[in-house]
Simulated assay, not measured.
Amino acid sequence: MTDDFPHTWQASVLNGAPMIMPARHFVFPLAIAGEEEALARGALWLNVKPVDGSNFVAQCALGFSDKNLASGLWSTPNPDHLLAVAGGYAYRIPASQPEATALLPIRPVVSVHAAPEAEALILIGFHDAVILTPDGMWQSPKLTWEGVTEVAVDGTILRGKGWHMPSDKELPFALDLRTQTLTGGGFNP
């Protein structure tokens, strides 16, 4: 678990299904077309204890079986939310209302980076990023034609490189996490 932001819940990753399932057990993703077989790939199991109420188990289906994709548990800029990433699929789970869990629109998530100064948690995909904030989330413009590399957080700026197809070069980018302004990058329409 990565604990970069204050939070109101406690959580742990389990090795599998608990021997005794608590009364509250949630399976994610919810019914989504094309995801009927997601749980067959495996799942990330979490035990979550919200600040108020009883604990619950969250079973988060793996997006992909690739070990190079992100998997794990992160605190987020919203103290009630936790982020579970299972084989590149990202689930934003409100600890006080787990039935409102959202499967995030970026698939697969390749890496996750905290930017505490910007109150942001950054999920990097193949072409762009999703940024979680205390009040919600936003999606970056395209950063590359394919593959974001050399990712680093510099205060409130996300830096990295992205492949520019016409020149076949990796070009640097800087994304201001407060203003949502992108400078540079490998994707120029």
Rank of each mutant, 00 (worst) to 15 (best):
M1K: 09
M1Y: 10
T2P: 13
D4F: 03
F5A: 01
F5V: 02
P6N: 11
T8I: 12
A11V: 08
S12R: 14
G16F: 12
F26P: 01
P29W: 02
P29S: 04
L30N: 10
L30S: 14
L30T: 15
G34Y: 09
E36H: 07
E36P: 06
L39I: 13
G42T: 05
G42Q: 01
G42V: 08
A43H: 00
W45K: 06
N47H: 09
P50A: 00
V51N: 13
V51F: 12
G53F: 04
S54L: 13
A58P: 07
C60S: 00
A61G: 01
L62N: 04
L62K: 07
F64V: 03
F64I: 08
S65P: 00
D66R: 05
G72R: 09
W74V: 14
W74Y: 07
T76E: 07
N78I: 06
D80G: 14
D80M: 12
L82V: 13
A84G: 04
V85Y: 02
A86P: 05
Y91I: 06
I93T: 01
P94N: 05
A95S: 06
Q97H: 10
E99Y: 11
T101Y: 08
A102T: 15
I106P: 02
P108A: 01
S111G: 11
S111Y: 03
S111W: 04
H113M: 11
A115D: 06
P116M: 14
A118E: 10
A120P: 07
L121G: 07
I122A: 11
G125M: 04
G125P: 03
D128N: 07
A129D: 14
L132H: 14
G136P: 10
M137Q: 15
T144I: 09
G147S: 07
T149M: 11
E150P: 08
A152N: 09
D154C: 10
D154E: 15
G155M: 01
L158E: 06
L158C: 14
M165S: 13
P166T: 07
P166M: 09
S167G: 09
E170S: 05
L171K: 01
A174M: 07
L175E: 08
D176H: 03
D176C: 09
L177S: 11
L177R: 03
R178D: 14
Q180R: 03
Q180G: 04
Q180M: 10
L182R: 07
T183I: 13
G185N: 00
G185H: 00
P189W: 08
